[in-house]
Amino acid sequence: MNIVITGISGFVGQNLSAYLKEQNYFLSELSLRNEWKLKKEADAVIHLAGKAHDTANTSEDEEYFKINTELTKKLFDEFLQSEIKDFIFFSSVKASADTVEGILDEDHISNPQTPYGKSKFLAEQYLLSKELPEDKRLFIIRPCMIHGPGNKGNLNLLYKIVEKGIPWPLASFHNQRSFLSIDNLNFLILQILENENIKSGIYNFADDEFISTNQLIKIISQISGIKCRLWNVPAGLISSVARLGDIIKMPLNSERLKKLTESYAVSNKKIKSALNIINLPVSAEEGLIKTIKSFQSK
């Protein structure tokens, strides 16, 4: 099977392309940076390229819409004019919601608040507004936080904090978060490509279990051989300090506290039901252990 893939140089692109090659897929990279033309004799397009969420908020809003929305529209229009059967667009759970009450599933009414989430959601809306020929399929993938060996995201930052023996003072806050190991992501994409009975639609990608920040710190401590230092400072006191940080410049403010302690639980039941499976190959804890162990070799 011939696959066109955009964003192949990114973390997901590198891992997914290597995995698909091991499964005897032929991949061709498509760069959307300059002039480009879609290879129309391929079997599927996997659209990974995009402007990632800038947590430092230094990016111009229009940059998200130019890359995440407009380029996706153009690529999808080319796909509709081709003989290619499948279009797999990597959106984000942030296209649905920035904060979650309960468990996020695909039926949630989308209400993104950030330029990143809005740009992904507008792209989704455009794809869904087009009439899809009967012989084609469209998959809108909404992954939660992806991790794996070689990833340099928030997990690596938390690992460094624990490794230095710095106590975690927010243990009194209890949350539940979803993660997505790169191994489970690769598995799910392969199943979509190989199973023609899976219907077009929006699918959340997440590991099976939810993990709390306190659990994550315990896992990191165990792997690192460092004593787990969870401090149960009263939540009310922490919140008061954060509110003070809203007034005067401090490392902790209300927004940062929310990001560190909020829950973001994502359901993966729809994709598992489509595949008729009970569990993904890798548990949430197994995937996190594999990622965290990779930090030790750096």
Rank of each mutant, 00 (worst) to 15 (best):
G150H: 06
A123R: 00
L180C: 12
I292V: 15
V162K: 03
I182A: 05
L257C: 14
A284L: 09
V45A: 05
D54Y: 09
Q296A: 00
D77N: 15
L180R: 08
Q296R: 14
E83C: 02
P133Q: 09
T114Q: 06
K259E: 12
Q125I: 03
Q81A: 11
P281L: 11
S96G: 10
K39T: 12
E209R: 12
L275C: 11
L288W: 03
G148A: 11
R243H: 15
L138P: 05
K66Y: 12
Y203H: 12
P112A: 02
H108V: 13
I146R: 10
S28H: 08
I192R: 06
A206E: 10
G148T: 07
N253A: 07
E131S: 08
K259S: 13
S17Y: 02
S212K: 12
G153F: 00
T69V: 01
K39V: 04
I192D: 05
E134G: 08
D105T: 12
Q125Y: 07
D246C: 06
W168L: 04
K94T: 06
R177A: 13
V233H: 00
V4M: 02
D98C: 10
N68A: 05
T114W: 00
E262F: 12
A56G: 02
N268C: 14
K94N: 07
I217Q: 03
I189K: 06
Q215F: 03
V45Y: 05
N214R: 04
E29S: 13
Y264I: 10
M145I: 15
L288A: 09
E285L: 09
K37L: 10
K218E: 15
L190C: 06
K218A: 12
L252T: 08
S178D: 14
G225S: 14
D246I: 02
D135P: 00
